[in-house]
Nucleic acid binder design. Structure first.
Length: 823
RNA sequence: GCGGGCGUGGUGGAAUCGGUAGACACGCCGGCUUUAGGUGCCGGUGGCGCAAGCCAUGGGGGUUCAAGUCCCUCCGCCCGCACCA
């Protein structure tokens, strides 16, 4: 019998894929015709080699969501593209000489081939790679729009230099002082670079997190990264140089406790201040050492405090005291003003420094619980040793009064500081979007006119960066004329961070065929925002923050409808696939390739299994035997469908249902309800698939009985319909065998309430909270009737006899708990 | 150090609002069919116990008629941030 209806995915899957490709089943028009829309988007892949198991998982999730939304009656945009610029292809080119375009396009070809083999319901007419000139033309256009509005600018600054990749990196790409990709300790270099003014959007990026449905931990990470602090800027004056040194502090209430003043080693005035003092040589040496030390070591919080006195003082504006100045590497140039007022009594770091250097410590806040308690004290309490009008006032009340006083005296003002820095986008590398700027000795940095876009990446001999962009070697390309004055000029040779490409690709999908513009705002307005975005949590700050910034900036510039303020209305982050509790990696030799699974079991098994292992937002362990279980399940579904289709042609549901029919229909409607809620309220694909398995088990159990052909057929068709989002080929095949219809053209089933209600239910009987018996009870039974059933139970009596019944708790539809006390 | 998540059978996991712990699957044990089988089907499977029953959701305590779920405390693992003034 088994041989008669052998499940052969190698035959079934290509056959249905051909139908979908030939008919353009998953293509969607921008003319929505009044239907509700759903934009379901999985983060675009970086094409390198071939897809790995993580790709299989994330696209299985995305495709399930897309199918579910489609059959719920929405027009679904489910596109695909490639994040094609980037370092791995370029490093490969340095090693082999193969052009990054060739290796990248080979990888894209392989990705596309496998995605089609997986049967993903992609609208392939919208496909693109970010490395195509017809695409990066618009990346350059966006850059120029930002440039023209002052949101892209060039400045010389201390930047992160990755000595292995030989390029600068954005702050977001430096993890624990090391380059994100290379793992090399990052050096500080003073270089002129291009930045995007993301800090202008800090407040909106923070506040508008409230408007989107994202995992709370991702929002928290963005909030921390933006790092908003409220406080005050206070000006300290140095009399010798007649220079003002503003500081940012969140604790202006502790101003009276400032006993010294510290500058960061990078502060531009450090050497000037020390000049001519007896400390000059020592300061010079300290600064040199601090600037060359690597960032990771400097950032260690447990490191002992070091520093050198400058031999100068500043005046504390609130009390006129002269505070000694120091330079110390625990003060960071990147945050605030690169200078701090030190209040050792109420700040742990200042306290450690004061201890190490024997500096004065003055308490200005009492600990209400322990007025003579240990220092440093970072809590709240009444001010002491401050000014007569503030002593005794609680510090949190005094704080605004002190700020107001500073403002009146012109010595400071309320201020807000962010940890977020502007986004450094220049890269001294080859394989990226060229920055469309011409440097003219007379006119400065000039935008390449729009009609000359794209500035096409020139071919070069040597991809190896040598402290400057490889593009600099393309001399004919570099030499050009100034678009403004026509004089001799040179092209910018740096390329853009690849995160620029992925900051707008989701807009392009909406209007992918547009040759006249990056997109038509009206069309983008029909699709945006992305209703469900799906991807890895590793992009929690980088990509997801940049894309939000781009969306807001482009809306401000009038290129997006005003109501499009957030790119991704809902976000789902999927967990990793592990093997034996470990990450899969070539080094460990524990890699399972999607290709091998698909070849062996078919795409349906691979996709359904990966969603069945566990909740998709959690990490999951791959099991070679587990995948066979899924294959058996799909084979059983196919076989039962094929048998039923052959044996029982076209039977409708009978008018009179027998007990087995009733049982099948109840289970079917239960499963419809369960799968629907698992998919719409949560992303619980594992329990949804389990429900379909239960449904199929019910058919096997009941089949030998007296179930009518129509009921069996309906049940199997329901199972095929419900499993379709996870295993589309075998579901289409089975459904077609049973009904002659195409399952994706059928609306998502809805449960019939008549079959969800039952005349009786299993009443659980407890004595003192322990289950002692289960009996059938009428669904509409009253509390008294349920209690009567409990009392009538022999098993209950056995445990209550000889005891006093204290009370009887009734949970309607569930249980009765008889509470007794030994008498 | 701060913030967040997690801990359930041999394994992955389920238990959605405080109400039947272990759905579904893997694995394992037994049986049947067929044997060319990596097939199919049936039954069993948290632990202890002959049984009645008792015990059991990382440990300990608490609230409650009732706790995997709530509270306190401790332990372990994972993730993020970390000299941010």
């Amino acid at each position: 019998m088994a041989a008669e209806h052998r499940y052969d995915p190698a035959e079934i899957e290509p056959r249905w894929q051909r139908v979908w490709a030939e008919e353009g089943t998953w293509e969607v028009s921008n003319d929505l015709g009044g239907d509700p829309k759903s934009y379901v988007l999985v983060m675009l892949p970086y094409p390198s080699g071939e897809p790995h198991i993580g790709h299989l998982k994330v696209y299985a999730v995305g495709d399930a969501v897309a199918h579910f939304h489609r059959r719920a009656g929405r027009r679904v945009l489910n596109p695909m593209g490639y994040d094609a610029f980037g370092l791995p292809a370029e490093n490969h080119a340095i090693k082999t000489g193969q052009h990054p375009r060739d290796s990248t396009e080979a990888a894209i070809e392989e990705f596309r081939r496998q995605f089609r083999e997986w049967g993903l319901s992609i609208d392939w007419t919208r496909e693109f790679g970010t490395h195509e000139p017809r695409i990066y033309r618009w990346t350059q256009w966006i850059f120029l729009e930002l440039f023209r509005r002052g949101l892209a600018y060039q400045k010389e600054a201390a930047v992160n230099w990755d000595p292995v990749e030989e390029t600068v990196l954005a702050n977001e790409q430096v993890i624990d002082g090391r380059g994100e990709r290379s793992g090399a300790l990052v050096e500080v270099r003073q270089l002129k670079q291009w930045f995007f003014r993301i800090t202008d959007y800090a407040d909106r990026l923070l506040a508008e997190l409230q408007t989107i449905r994202w995992p709370e931990h991702v929002k928290t990470m963005q909030r921390n990264w933006i790092g908003r602090s409220e406080g005050a800027e206070v000006v300290f004056h140095n009399e010798e140089l007649r220079a003002d040194y503003p500081v940012f502090t969140t604790r202006p209430d502790t101003l009276f406790g400032a006993t010294f003043f510290v500058l960061a080693p990078e502060h531009p005035d450090v050497l000037r201040l020390a000049e001519g003092t007896s400390h000059e040589a020592e300061v010079r040496e300290y600064v040199n050492r601090a600037l060359t030390a690597d960032k990771a070591l400097r950032g260690d919080i447990d490191k002992e405090k070091t520093g050198v006195a400058l031999g100068r003082t500043v005046v504390n504006p609130v009390n006129g005291e002269h505070l000694p100045m120091y330079v110390a590497d625990y003060v960071l140039m990147e945050y605030g003003t690169g200078a701090i007022m030190a209040v050792p009594a109420h700040d742990e770091r200042d306290f450690a420094f004061a201890e190490a250097f024997g500096l004065k410590i003055r308490r200005v806040i009492d600990d209400p619980g322990d007025p003579e308690g240990e220092l440093p004290y970072t809590g709240n309490g009444p001010l002491v040793n401050s000014a007569p009008e503030f002593d005794g006032v609680h510090n949190r009340e005094a704080l605004p009064a002190i700020v107001a006083w500073l403002e009146r005296e012109g010595k400071g003002h309320a201020s807000i500081n962010y940890r977020l820095r502007d986004w450094l986008i220049s890269r001294q590398r080859y394989w990226g979007t060229p920055i469309p700027i011409v440097h003219c000795p007379r006119c400065g940095a000039v935008a390449v006119p729009d009609d000359e876009l794209p500035v096409v990446l020139p071919d070069v001999e040597d991809y190896k960066p040598r402290g400057r962009s490889p593009l600099a070697a393309a001399e004919d390309w570099v030499r050009t004329s100034c678009p403004q004055c026509g004089g001799a000029a040179e092209r910018e040779t740096d390329t853009m961070d690849t995160f620029v490409d992925s900051s707008w690709y989701f807009l392009r999908y909406c209007d992918a065929a547009n040759d006249e513009a990056a997109w038509d705002p009206a069309i983008v307005g029909r699709w945006m925002p992305v209703d469900q975005y799906i991807g890895g949590v590793e992009h929690a700050i980088l990509h997801l923050l940049y894309a939000r910034f781009f969306t807001k900036a482009l809306a401000d510039l009038g290129h997006l409808p005003e109501e499009v303020q957030e790119p991704f209305a809902a976000l789902f982050t999927q967990g990793m696939i592990l093997r034996d509790g470990d990450k899969m990696s070539k080094n460990k030799g524990n890699v399972v390739s999607p290709q091998s699974i698909v070849e062996r079991y078919g795409a349906d098994t691979a996709r359904a299994y990966i969603l069945f292992i566990g909740p998709p937002d959690q990490d999951a362990d791959w099991s070679d035997t587990g995948v066979e279980g899924m294959h058996r399940f799909l084979a059983r579904l196919y076989r039962l469908a094929a048998e039923a289709a052959g044996e029982l042609p076209g039977d409708p549901l009978p008018d009179e249902l027998n007990a087995d029919d009733e049982r099948l229909l109840r289970k079917a409607h239960w499963a419809i309800e369960k799968v629907t809620s698992d998919m719409s309220e949560r992303f619980n694909f594992n329990t949804a698939i389990a429900a379909v398995m239960e449904l199929l088990n019910e058919v096997t159990t009941v089949k030998r009985g007296a179930a009518s052909a129509g009921a069996v057929r309906f049940t199997l068709a329901s199972a095929a319909s419900l499993i379709f989002p996870f295993a589309p080929h075998v579901a289409s095949e089975s459904y077609h065998l049973l009904t002659g219809d195409r399952v994706w053209e059928r609306p998502w089933p809805s449960p019939d309430p008549r079959y969800l209600e039952t005349a009786t239910f299993e009443l659980v009987l407890q004595v003192n909270g322990k289950v002692r018996d289960r009996v059938q009870a009428p669904s509409d039974a009253s509390r008294d009737e349920l209690i009567a059933l409990a009392r009538a139970s022999e098993r209950v009596q056995q445990f209550t006899d000889g005891s006093e019944v204290v009370k009887e708790v009734v949970v309607p539809g569930k249980l009765v708990n008889v509470v007794v006390r030994a008498s």
